[in-house]
């Protein structure tokens, strides 16, 4: 059980990307004989959720998001060290890129930063990525999810191509797929058979966590 004050301090440490404070809270909590997972789930994860929300509202900016992610990475390492091996959870693995023919990657970069901040292992394979490359990389890193981004209506079709190619390779059930980008909608995701659609960066965290289960 984490007391309310500690929860508040943990959330604040992540939002303010206060590394020293976050580490101090974590160590103190563990040294008191508590289960380290509790401070993670009740304090730091809501903290990074708050960071995502503030970013989505224009109250917090990318450098702050990246610094908060860095603090999150450090406290995650401390929490994991203190956990018995059987309690260690394998972090979700995501392969992400902008589809073939599309060089726009600003939005995808924000998604990557927020996914990493939320403890996911993200393999960003860049922009103008061939459909085959998404599959190769996903197989290589044993990904849970493949995420494709596109800014252009003219390149949306490559998100559909991925679904086709995965089926052709007999790998459709091995990976979950999620699509995003300015012209992309939930309707499009359902039409092409993608597993999820993300409205924005914060939504991608929610949806990918749901996909991974």
């Amino acid at each position: 059980m984490v007391d309310e004050q500690t929860i508040k301090e943990a959330i604040k440490a992540i939002v303010d990307h206060d590394e020293a404070k976050a580490i101090e809270i974590t160590k103190k909590f563990i040294e008191a004989g508590n289960n380290s997972l509790e401070i993670m789930t009740e304090g730091f994860i809501p903290g990074i959720g708050e960071v995502g929300d503030q970013f989505g509202r224009g109250l917090l900016f990318l450098p702050g998001l990246v610094q908060s992610a860095d603090v999150m990475k450090k406290v995650t390492a401390l929490v994991n060290e203190a956990l018995p091996e059987k309690q260690l959870e394998k972090p979700g693995v995501v392969v992400i890129g902008t589809v073939k023919g599309d060089i726009h990657d600003i939005g995808k970069g924000i998604v990557v930063a927020l996914l990493r901040a939320n403890g996911l292992v993200v393999h960003d394979i860049g922009r103008d990525v061939d459909t085959e490359k998404f599959i190769e990389e996903a197989v290589k890193v044993e990904a849970d999810v493949i995420g494709t981004s596109t800014l252009l209506t003219t390149t949306m079709g490559h998100q559909k191509d991925l679904e086709k190619e995965l089926k052709k390779a007999g790998l459709r059930d091995k990976f979950k797929t999620i699509v995003g980008g300015a012209p992309v909608t939930g309707r499009w995701a359902a039409k092409i058979g993608a597993d999820a659609y993300a409205e924005d960066a914060q939504d991608s965290v929610v949806k990918i966590k749901e996909l991974i289960g």
């Binding site: 509202r57 917090l60 900016f61 990318l62 450098p63 600003i106 924000i110």
Partner: peptide, 9 residues
Amino acid sequence: EFILGMHGE
């Protein structure tokens, strides 16, 4: 709708 803070400052 809002200016994305890629730089922040």
